[in-house]
């Protein structure tokens, strides 16, 4: 196998592995939204507060996934 292919292989595998971290963010967002929707259903008067807090929580959970994405983007496009 020539070095160029090895580099591509390594980059692709590394980027793919880095994106495993996005699974955690997905689970977190699912839990947050699920909980928020349940809360809104039980307690519709408090929807604005719950929504705000949900968006915040989702943003924090998403940030973790975004870190994974940034790492894999750096592996793919910046490393050479």
């Amino acid at each position: 196998m020539d070095p160029q292919s090895t580099i591509i292989l390594g980059k692709a595998i590394g980027a793919g592995l880095a994106m495993i971290g996005a699974a955690g963010g997905g689970i977190g967002i699912g839990l947050a939204v699920g909980g928020a929707v349940q809360a809104m259903g039980r307690n519709p008067d408090h929807t604005p507060t719950i929504q705000t807090n949900m968006i915040l929580g989702v943003a924090f959970a998403e940030a973790v996934a975004i870190y994974a994405l940034v790492v894999s983007l750096i592996i793919l496009f910046v490393l050479s």
């Binding site: 940030a63 870190y67 940034v70």
Partner: peptide, 13 residues
């Protein structure tokens, strides 16, 4: 860090 990378990551992606 999280502010800057959240926006960058989302929009770049």
């Amino acid at each position: 860090l999280s502010f800057s990378f959240r926006l960058l990551g989302n929009i770049f992606a």
